[in-house]
Amino acid sequence: MTTENTSQPEQPKSIPTSFRRLLCGAALALASLPAFAQNAPADAAKPAPARAEAQRSKADAAATATLAALLPHLAASDTIPLMDRSAMFAGDLSRLISAYDASKGVAAATDAALANDSDGKVQSLLRRAMTLLGTPYRWGGTSPDAGFDCSGLVGYVFRTALGIELPRVSREMASQANAELINDRAALVAGDLVFFGRRGRVDHVGIYVGDGRFLHAPSTGKDVRTDTLLSGYWGDKFMQARRVAL
């Protein structure tokens, strides 16, 4: 005698409330990108139609690029638990927004620092450096394709932007006799090399970009980014700076 299978079809699992909240938050963050892309005050005069259209295009492009980077994790294999996928999504969103804000912050911070850059060399240097934001760290790396370590990044920027060859390692850069030594971080200007270390030994270098921030390739597992040297970890490790003749 056969037994009829009376079990009901398995109902699809509902999406956890926490994940729905995450998606809502992500949608709000993405929706805010166009506002970030427009720097004019709210009470300023409305821009000309052509300018407004250009701003909207840039905002749309930023939102599209962000979605393109995030969607693969949303559409990940079903073998990955839903909450794990949501965690990956949140991590990617956080990194993308941080990079977006960092780029804007560097651009704003350099405006005042470049006021006296009559020949445009410092501006060329920093523009080249900013294009490398987000490049992965790689020990011994000296190119965007291979990745960068700290001195590889600095050397690449100076070489490709201005044709200036620097020593390969940070401690040799820090001892260049033909570059002005600066011990007071309050005297820094955009384009200066900033050095960090422990127990009196230099082991890291970056490029000062203004407003107390510097651009560098931090360490394994991290990407090229900007950090403050006025406080915190890098503030405690700051040792000196050098001003290369441009």
Score class of each variant (00 low, 15 high):
residue 232 G to M: 07
residue 203 D to I: 06
residue 195 F to W: 02
residue 195 F to N: 10
residue 222 K to V: 01
residue 227 D to P: 04
residue 215 L to M: 13
residue 194 V to G: 05
residue 233 Y to K: 06
residue 230 L to T: 11
residue 189 V to Y: 02
residue 221 G to P: 00
residue 220 T to I: 02
residue 198 R to Q: 12
residue 221 G to Q: 04
residue 193 L to G: 04
residue 233 Y to S: 06
residue 200 G to H: 11
residue 226 T to A: 13
residue 208 Y to N: 13
residue 216 H to F: 12
residue 220 T to A: 15
residue 231 S to D: 13
residue 215 L to Q: 10
residue 230 L to G: 14
residue 208 Y to S: 01
residue 223 D to N: 14
residue 210 G to L: 02
residue 225 R to C: 15
residue 210 G to P: 14
residue 217 A to G: 04
residue 216 H to K: 06
residue 234 W to H: 02
residue 219 S to W: 01
residue 209 V to H: 04
residue 226 T to C: 15
residue 211 D to S: 13
residue 190 A to Q: 10
residue 233 Y to N: 09
residue 200 G to P: 12
residue 192 D to I: 06
residue 207 I to R: 01
residue 190 A to K: 06
residue 226 T to D: 11
residue 234 W to I: 04
residue 194 V to S: 04
residue 197 G to D: 03
residue 198 R to S: 14
residue 214 F to C: 08
residue 191 G to A: 01
residue 228 T to C: 13
residue 231 S to T: 15
residue 218 P to H: 08
residue 193 L to A: 07
residue 199 R to F: 01
residue 210 G to C: 00
residue 212 G to K: 07
residue 221 G to S: 09
residue 219 S to Y: 02
residue 209 V to T: 12
residue 204 H to L: 07
residue 201 R to H: 14
residue 221 G to D: 10
residue 233 Y to E: 11
residue 206 G to C: 01
residue 200 G to W: 11
residue 235 G to Q: 09
residue 225 R to T: 15
residue 223 D to W: 03
residue 227 D to S: 15
residue 209 V to A: 12
residue 234 W to N: 09
residue 206 G to V: 14
residue 194 V to I: 13
residue 199 R to Y: 12
residue 191 G to M: 05
residue 233 Y to V: 06
residue 188 L to I: 08
residue 206 G to K: 03
residue 230 L to S: 15
residue 215 L to S: 07
residue 232 G to I: 11
residue 206 G to Y: 11
residue 190 A to V: 08
residue 229 L to T: 13
residue 209 V to L: 05
residue 226 T to L: 11
residue 229 L to Y: 09
residue 226 T to P: 02
residue 229 L to Q: 11
residue 190 A to W: 05
residue 217 A to Q: 09
residue 204 H to A: 08
residue 199 R to N: 10
residue 219 S to I: 01
residue 198 R to Y: 05
residue 221 G to V: 13
residue 200 G to L: 08
residue 235 G to W: 01
residue 204 H to N: 01
residue 205 V to E: 04
residue 188 L to Q: 09
residue 210 G to Y: 06
residue 212 G to M: 02
residue 209 V to C: 12
residue 229 L to V: 12
residue 199 R to D: 12
